[in-house]
Simulated assay, not measured.
Amino acid sequence: MGVRSLMAASGALMLSFLAFTPLSRGAEPQVYVIEINKLAFGSAPAGLHVNDIIEWRNSDIFRHTATADDGSFDIDLLPGAKGQTVLKRPGVIDYTCRFHPGMKGRLVVGP
């Protein structure tokens, strides 16, 4: 096999490798804050991905939870407290407060 043939073959191999390698969106997970106040969850952030971190901040005078309907997290927050959860899988995660079932939210997590 000649030098040009080897170069062409290695180039084709590299292109096929790149075609099947997922693109990285960045080296570090992002941290997003959802504030709880006046018996309501703040807006869920857009553009969430697996391994991103949600920081829950209870700015209310009542105790609250951020409890995933699928059981993937259950953060109990006294007034003034903070807690975090790492998003482990893509998909839609609905959540509520166990103490105030009218408080609801939804996270949409991409890969």
Results as ranks from 00 to 15, higher is better:
Thr96Pro: 12
Ala19Leu: 13
Asp74Lys: 10
Leu18Gly: 12
Val92Leu: 01
Gln30Cys: 09
Arg98Asn: 13
Gly26Asn: 06
Phe73Asn: 13
Leu107Glu: 13
Leu87Arg: 02
Leu39Arg: 09
Leu15Trp: 03
Pro45Glu: 00
Thr85Asn: 05
Gly47Thr: 09
Gly42Glu: 05
Thr85Tyr: 05
Glu35Gly: 14
Val86Trp: 02
Ala27Arg: 09
Gln84His: 07
Gln84Tyr: 05
Glu35Asp: 15
Ala81Glu: 15
Pro101Met: 00
Ala40Asp: 10
Asn37Leu: 06
Asn51Thr: 15
Leu107Gly: 14
Tyr95Gln: 15
Gln84Gly: 08
Gly71Ile: 06
Met103Cys: 12
Ser16Glu: 03
Arg98Val: 04
Ala27Met: 06
Val33Arg: 06
Asn58Ile: 04
Ile36Glu: 06
Asp70Met: 02
Ala46Trp: 05
His100Phe: 15
Gly26His: 04
Gln30Leu: 09
Phe17Pro: 12
Glu35Asn: 13
Asp60Gln: 04
Ala81Ile: 01
Ala66Glu: 07
Leu15Arg: 01
Gly47Val: 10
Thr67Trp: 09
Pro79Tyr: 05
Ile34Val: 15
Thr67Cys: 10
Asp70Cys: 03
Glu55Leu: 03
Glu35Ser: 14
Asn58Phe: 01
Asn37Ser: 13
Val50His: 01
His64Trp: 10
Asp74Glu: 08
Arg25Met: 10
Val92Ile: 14
Ile93Asp: 01
Arg63Asp: 11
Phe17Glu: 11
Met103Ser: 11
Asp94Ala: 11
Arg25Tyr: 08
Asp70Pro: 15
Phe20Pro: 11
Ala66Val: 15
Phe62Trp: 10
Pro45Lys: 00
Ala44Phe: 03
Leu48Tyr: 10
Ala46Thr: 14
Glu55Ala: 01
Cys97Met: 05
Ala44Thr: 05
Asn51Ile: 00
Arg89Trp: 02
Ala40His: 11
Val31Met: 04
Ala68Leu: 00
Phe20Asn: 12
Arg89Ile: 02
Phe62Ala: 08
Lys38Thr: 12
Gln30Ala: 14
Pro29Thr: 03
Pro45Ser: 00
His49Ile: 02
Ile75Leu: 04
Gln84Ala: 08
Asp94Val: 03
Ala66Asn: 09
Tyr32Gly: 09
Val86Cys: 03
Tyr32Leu: 00
Ile61Phe: 13
Arg57Gly: 05
Arg89Leu: 02
Asp52Trp: 04
His64Ser: 05
Ser72Asn: 14
Ser72Ala: 14
His64Asn: 09
Gly26Pro: 14
Ile75Gln: 13
His49Val: 06
His100Ala: 09
Leu107Asn: 05
Leu39Tyr: 11
Thr21Asn: 07
Pro45Tyr: 01
Ser43Arg: 09
Gly83His: 09
Thr67Ser: 10
Ile34Gly: 04
Val33His: 07
Val86Phe: 02
Ala68Met: 02
Lys104Gln: 14
Ile61Arg: 05
Leu23Ala: 11
Trp56Asp: 07
Asp60Ala: 05
